[in-house]
Write a protein that binds this DNA or RNA. Sequence first.
DNA 1: GTCTATAACCCGATAGAC
DNA 2: GTCTATCGGGTTATAGAC
Lengths: 223, 223
Amino acid sequence: MAKSTEGRGKSARTLAAILEAAEMLFARKGFDGTRLEDVAAAVGIRRPSISYYFRDKRVLYKAVQSAVLSGLRQRILGALARGAAPLERIENAITAWVHYVGERPATALIIMREIVETPGGRGPAAAEFLAPIVTAIRKEVEEGQRIGHFRAAEPLHFVFNIVGATTFFVTAGPILAPDLPFDPLDAEKQENHLFECLSVARRLLGVEAGSRVGAAAEGAAAK
Amino acid sequence: MAKSTEGRGKSARTLAAILEAAEMLFARKGFDGTRLEDVAAAVGIRRPSISYYFRDKRVLYKAVQSAVLSGLRQRILGALARGAAPLERIENAITAWVHYVGERPATALIIMREIVETPGGRGPAAAEFLAPIVTAIRKEVEEGQRIGHFRAAEPLHFVFNIVGATTFFVTAGPILAPDLPFDPLDAEKQENHLFECLSVARRLLGVEAGSRVGAAAEGAAAK
DNA sequence: GTCTATAACCCGATAGAC
DNA sequence: GTCTATCGGGTTATAGAC
């Protein structure tokens, strides 16, 4: 929007390249494991040049985290706003979630890293982005319970199950089944996973598998 | 067994204390985030004394990982051996899994850390312990499919879903719902989670929720 | 067995030239 | 904008006294 983020200058291109390289590296190696030197090398510049764009490493990390997670938040809250009944809105949100993670695999790794770093006390961090999403889902589940569409159950369990399932689907292959060729980025496997998530969601919400509410708004939810 | 691990000397007690402190710290802060000095402080000794028991930091980490994950493997494979039909054996394994993680919360964090570190290439690591478990479950699912008890589906999806759900159940509260008081160690919430895992498992395997196969061997599985 | 003291290393941050 | 050079904090590993 502003000239600082949209210019066509060398500056803007370098900045974008730094963010892109940092997203991949932070996701794969974590904050400590990523050397600023590696980010610079991936961009084709030298370490101190990064300081020209980001005051220090933590600021760079925050920028990456913000880009990934605010994109996720926007997608899910947008999807959640579409749909007539709670079940439909929730299914749109799940669809948006699975698709976003599929498009931007760093998402899953960054979320896992944030979860795992939180008990250590290093930074409040991602809660700023993720908590609003979870709250919105929870409200939707509670609304569905109130009007008798869903069974009574702890909404958080529902959230943890879906988020955990997709996150592991994308990341856990290499360690849980290292000798199997499992590609989570394969489109067919991904739709398969989405289908199972929707099925599990209905089971957890106490909705019979019959009715066919969700699949309609799919195109809108994905974009 | 041998005198080196079972002796009543000061040595054995210090070693056990180091392992215990390191398990908590590695789980909470990770490999890089844990300073040997903190481990020493938790035990009440000084940093170089750790070197007397473990040649370097990596060896200490491996020892912790081995303790946690080989315990898990033993528990799950043991549970999987009990039960007449695939469904019953799988339900025993899920029960053992949820209970183990509940008893030893470091398990979930260490598994997540291993998953997240693997793409970074730092150490082959936990696959040695986890892959055999997953393979055994997979075989059981495939057997159930072969004899027509389960629907056809990718067994790995099933595994990722259950493992991801429990892992997030235990760890994700502080970051996904920071303002809610959510205690995953609460016994009632844990049984609730187990119940939902079993329900989800049946859904994913295509088994009707009706029959009451699993709950019997529970006591044996937990011990 | 446990300590003190120190060596060696890595990496992020900064000064300042171009 | 990007570089070279350097400083400095923090942590591991090790030598050697007790």
